[in-house]
Amino acid sequence: MATKAVCVLKGDGPVQGIINFEQKESNGPVKVWGSIKGLTEGLHGFHVHEFGDNTAGCTSAGPHFNPLSRKHGGPKDEERHVGDLGNVTADKDGVADVSIEDSVISLSGDHCIIGRTLVVHEKADDLGKGGNEESTKTGNAGSRLACGVIGIAQ
């Protein structure tokens, strides 16, 4: 089992970053940390998408990683996509320092995120509470600013 993974985020604009993942036990939580720069100040949706395909930019990554066919939600919700990591918060300089621990994603097994795409979005994720159909699919997080395929790390 891989215990570490990394993702280099890039987009068409100024947004870029490096996100690290570490899972010490196969059924334990995954620590997610790193930094994203070039964002507007505020909240930005942060999700693992189904495919590791960036051939047409971030759009070819498909929908959120959702092997259990659930509705979109927040990272602490029972009803959520596996890939729903909530929001990252950018400061006035456009930098989001990421520090998350998640017990639904994994670096092995059915919820493995390796080979899938991590995406940072234009807007805040409403965590499935926006009151419309799009909220239950995407959290109304808007366009995909930057993305990268999650790969095994040393």
Rank of each mutant, 00 (worst) to 15 (best):
residue 26 S to T: 14
residue 60 S to H: 02
residue 75 P to E: 10
residue 61 A to Y: 02
residue 128 G to Q: 03
residue 10 K to V: 15
residue 127 L to Q: 06
residue 139 G to F: 02
residue 13 G to S: 08
residue 127 L to Y: 11
residue 9 L to W: 13
residue 105 I to S: 09
residue 44 H to E: 01
residue 126 D to M: 03
residue 107 L to M: 14
residue 87 N to V: 06
residue 127 L to P: 04
residue 91 D to F: 15
residue 50 E to N: 06
residue 42 G to Y: 03
residue 103 S to H: 07
residue 45 G to Y: 02
residue 149 V to N: 04
residue 129 K to D: 10
residue 50 E to V: 14
residue 145 L to E: 12
residue 90 A to Q: 06
residue 120 V to G: 03
residue 75 P to K: 04
residue 5 A to V: 13
residue 119 V to F: 00
residue 41 E to T: 05
residue 60 S to K: 02
residue 66 N to G: 09
residue 19 I to N: 03
residue 33 W to K: 15
residue 131 G to P: 14
residue 112 C to P: 15
residue 61 A to C: 07
residue 83 G to L: 02
residue 113 I to Q: 00
residue 93 D to N: 14
residue 129 K to Y: 06
residue 20 N to I: 06
residue 118 L to F: 09
residue 97 D to V: 08
residue 110 D to K: 09
residue 147 C to I: 00
residue 144 R to L: 03
residue 61 A to Q: 01
residue 124 A to F: 10
residue 60 S to Y: 01
residue 43 L to N: 07
residue 6 V to R: 10
residue 68 L to D: 11
residue 46 F to I: 13
residue 124 A to T: 14
residue 34 G to Y: 03
residue 130 G to W: 10
residue 91 D to C: 06
residue 79 E to G: 09
residue 29 P to I: 14
residue 16 Q to L: 12
residue 63 P to Q: 06
residue 6 V to T: 08
residue 27 N to A: 09
residue 4 K to H: 05
residue 61 A to D: 02
residue 16 Q to A: 14
residue 140 N to A: 07
residue 34 G to W: 00
residue 130 G to L: 06
residue 129 K to T: 12
residue 63 P to F: 05
residue 108 S to P: 04
residue 19 I to D: 02
residue 11 G to N: 08
residue 140 N to F: 13
residue 35 S to G: 11
residue 3 T to Q: 06
residue 30 V to T: 07
residue 13 G to N: 15
residue 27 N to Y: 10
residue 103 S to A: 08
residue 148 G to E: 03
residue 6 V to M: 07
residue 65 F to G: 00
residue 137 K to P: 03
residue 78 E to M: 13
residue 48 V to N: 01
residue 79 E to S: 10
residue 133 E to Y: 11
residue 12 D to H: 14
residue 75 P to W: 13
residue 120 V to F: 05
residue 106 S to G: 09
residue 41 E to C: 05
residue 113 I to K: 00
residue 75 P to R: 12
residue 136 T to Q: 06
residue 7 C to V: 05
residue 139 G to T: 01
residue 144 R to K: 03
residue 86 G to T: 02
residue 115 G to R: 01
residue 150 I to G: 01
residue 145 L to W: 10
residue 45 G to L: 00
residue 146 A to D: 04
residue 36 I to C: 11
residue 45 G to V: 01
residue 101 E to K: 12
residue 18 I to Q: 13
residue 140 N to P: 01
residue 136 T to G: 08
